[in-house]
Design a binder for these strands. Sequence first.
DNA 1: CTGAAAGCGCTAACAT
DNA 2: ATGTTAGCGCTTTCAG
Lengths: 351, 351
Amino acid sequence: MRKKSKHPTLSEVAKRAGVGTTTVSRVINGVEHVEPATLARVEEAIKELGYLPNQAARVLKGHSARTIGFVIPSIADSFFSNCAEVLQSIARSHDYLVIVLTTQNDVNTERDAVNILTQHRVDGFVIAPADSESEALRSLLARLPVPIVALDRPVAGSAVPSVVANNFAGAQHATQHLIKHGYKRIVCLTGELNLYTIRERVRGYCDAVESAGLETVLETSIHDYESAERVIKKMFHGRNPPDAIFTLKNSTTMDTFEALQRQGISIPKTVALLGYDDFQLAGTVRPGITVVQQPIYELGHVAAQLLFQRLLSSTANGGAAAGLSPQQVQLKTRLIRRGSCGCSSARAGQF
Amino acid sequence: MRKKSKHPTLSEVAKRAGVGTTTVSRVINGVEHVEPATLARVEEAIKELGYLPNQAARVLKGHSARTIGFVIPSIADSFFSNCAEVLQSIARSHDYLVIVLTTQNDVNTERDAVNILTQHRVDGFVIAPADSESEALRSLLARLPVPIVALDRPVAGSAVPSVVANNFAGAQHATQHLIKHGYKRIVCLTGELNLYTIRERVRGYCDAVESAGLETVLETSIHDYESAERVIKKMFHGRNPPDAIFTLKNSTTMDTFEALQRQGISIPKTVALLGYDDFQLAGTVRPGITVVQQPIYELGHVAAQLLFQRLLSSTANGGAAAGLSPQQVQLKTRLIRRGSCGCSSARAGQF
DNA sequence: CTGAAAGCGCTAACAT
DNA sequence: ATGTTAGCGCTTTCAG
């Protein structure tokens, strides 16, 4: 004895209240010209049935789904989960929903994700492209009739607005900082050279090192603790060990810190350490770790703003985007000096 | 000169290919009885128009939205973002989407979230209830015609299946461990006593302390670094300072560690520290922090499995849930011994 | 102030 | 093998 259709429908409500469907519809969407008595009856029927309007029907009628998508490599990554939190709260303030899809930086998964969102007729989305240079992605996005904003990584050669940190300058300044400390052999530890952000950071590192007439030492095989440890062992057992290490993302920084510590290599005495991207406890471990801090909250915030500007203005004036914010936003990073680079760690401990 | 409807429709594809809508529909949903030549024409039309079926229409037709909801306090919390990652990947393997909604543990926001998901006709959802005892939530969930699974916190007195860790036993064992070390004055630091998990942990702590004939010292005003520091200062400047501290969630553990370190209070010499919930670098700071580790991955995994079992079986046999896994799953926690409790930190450093 | 009816894009009988 | 057609639940003219 189960109900056929699990959810009550508007016409069921109408029948129960003894009115037409139009009246119920009016009651649901902002009351206008409904007699108090009728209104009361309808509201009671709604309550009794536990009626909730079917979004699908509304959308089919041409209404917005009030939903945006968020396409990111991983949601377990604190950078992106923090962005997601910001995006979520802004979306909610506009009464929009967020659908999160993860790509693991795989271009096929990413293409599927974008298509799925399109099938769901989201009103727009924010994406951190797996491959900034992908021609396929660019043309895929170009066809879509909804606003899109790129986050953390741009879409090269495309009109898609983007909000990214200045990875080049961040890495460049960080490296210059190490150079000012007098370090002569600064190695750069990383993996995932295919990512836009990483490439930019590498560029910044190389630029600074070369400008100082030093030698670039790039190690691109770090993917986890084991690879970090192996590389570090090799470096310090070989001739010409580094006097400073620059790591390009926070898991690499942590792995490196851990490996150095376990091998009893003193920071910053034997080797200095500077990491790209801040993380919890970076100021609490001893020594505190000097890092390039990204404006995570701001990145998420600006991306959300850009998206909703377009969303709201296209609703308002039929698609003509007038007076919108700049298309390509680049945000500054900040160098947080703690003890690991050789600076006095007097101010260590800040998050 | 803008297109009216932004997305191409099935009948536009049909027109362009010179066939009926049915044929196009057949091409889209698993080809059956379509002549190769026709098929080719249709496929080309689809490609040319960049056609993607409108989910809303399908759903309205009675099809599943192939979407599940995930209702959690916050997505920036690593516990929940890790769960989200697991849920996401399992959902995707079943070709389902995940909509994430956050509640900040606010019951009204939570109610809204559930209703929004219902309006979107999700096929089911996983929820970490803000208030396990809420009668309102219980009755709200009871009315819903879709499968629901509670995660991390049960829904008291309800048929909703739940997947939670054994918070009581975890805290009890942890406290007993401190007692075995010989500590006599073990204080418990926490906030958010309204949460099910915290209350269970407090119960476990109290049980162990009282069974040992010691005094319970519960400090429930810790919300951030400042409050942690204030309380610790007071404790160590007053008479009868603690010889061990048990913190009930990881941010409290980190704040406490930091405050102790800044005040030059030695761990574990002056005071031992043991925290509930593991975190990155817990094994890397000095001393490594002994923690109760929750089976995060497994929690997410089992919750997802429970949900999809119900989802898939209700699709298969009309709602009769036959041979399903147990309704109330309770998972074991693990005590990870590092240096901060007074154990030798020989095995420290594991993540 | 209220109701009847058309139609959004799609699927699924039912025809052919 | 393919086309015709009737709705799914809702909003929205257009009439009363």
